[in-house]
């Protein structure tokens, strides 16, 4: 199963808006909660009340960017599997556990086949795969494949747990194969970008860059004074009140 499909019918994925993400980590924990209880083995934690290390499918980094002039900007940076078109993690897998779905392009690990060799995690440039130490199988974002088609959920809830929970609305889910979809339009309008394009993975997930910051000094013209001291001000006030 490690051959990649030549094309997929749909290209489901996420748009992550770096202009809006406040770094609250809600998506991280919603993902942990859903995927602990659902698809495959639970996301385990080692030494959870000591020096902990656990499995997460989505993690939020943060970076400071220093522009040439002006103050440094801080960008929160959520990262989960980007469901790459040319997913190297799939083709390296010896057991066939890793595969990309033909119908929607979701990259999954079939845990009943995985031998936990870790090679797919090595092949992924984004750090999107984590080997679960308790179960011994590779875990990764499933794009909530067990939510998005799940008719046990109300229709409006058939979206990834991380998208549903994001308080700032910085995460968007949809079909990139459809040029009119919300995610395709956002990507176009806001210059959505690929991470590490040089790696040739052709990620499906797109990132919207932060809008320009600290522009206020170049905005409105400065105010014109009507008066410089209280008496002048009261004269202006009288006239202004007349006009009311």
């Amino acid at each position: 199963m490690t051959a990649l499909p030549a094309t997929t019918t749909r290209q489901l994925g996420l748009v992550i808006d770096l202009d809006t993400c406040v770094g609250c980590q809600a998506c991280v924990i919603a993902c942990k909660g859903w995927n602990t209880e659902n698809y495959g083995a639970p996301l385990s934690d080692q030494d959870p009340y000591g020096t902990p290390s656990g499995t997460f499918l989505n993690r939020v980094h943060s970076y400071e960017v220093q522009p040439e002039t002006g103050s440094a900007q801080l960008v929160h940076f959520p990262k989960s599997c980007l469901h790459c078109e040319d997913a190297p993690c799939v083709t390296v897998c010896p057991t066939g556990a890793s595969y990309k779905r033909v119908e929607d392009g979701i990259v999954l690990v079939n845990e009943t086949d995985c031998m936990g060799c870790g090679l797919c995690a090595w092949a992924c440039p984004y750090g999107a795969r984590e080997l679960d130490l308790a179960a011994g199988v590779m875990k990764k974002c499933t794009l909530c494949v067990d939510r998005i088609y799940n008719d046990n959920l109300p229709e409006e809830d058939r979206e990834p747990a991380c998208v549903r929970t994001c308080p700032a609305g910085a995460r968007h889910f949809g079909d990139f194969a459809d040029p009119d979809s919300h995610v395709s339009r956002l990507t176009k309008e806001r210059d959505g970008m690929d991470l590490m394009p040089e790696q040739g993975t052709k990620p499906v997930n797109k990132y919207l860059p932060p809008r320009p910051r600290d522009q206020i000094d170049v905005l409105a013209p400065l105010l014109n004074p009507v008066a410089e001291e209280p008496t002048g001000f009261l004269r202006w006030l009288d006239k202004a009140l007349e006009r009311l």
Binding site: P52, S53, E64, Q66, Q73, L74, K79
Partner: peptide, 19 residues
């Protein structure tokens, strides 16, 4: 993808725990 703005530098890791 932040190179267009300036020079990025990791600020806070996503977790203080290991992984």
């Amino acid at each position: 993808g932040l190179g267009a703005i300036g020079t990025p530098r990791p600020f806070e890791p996503p977790h203080t725990g290991s992984n």
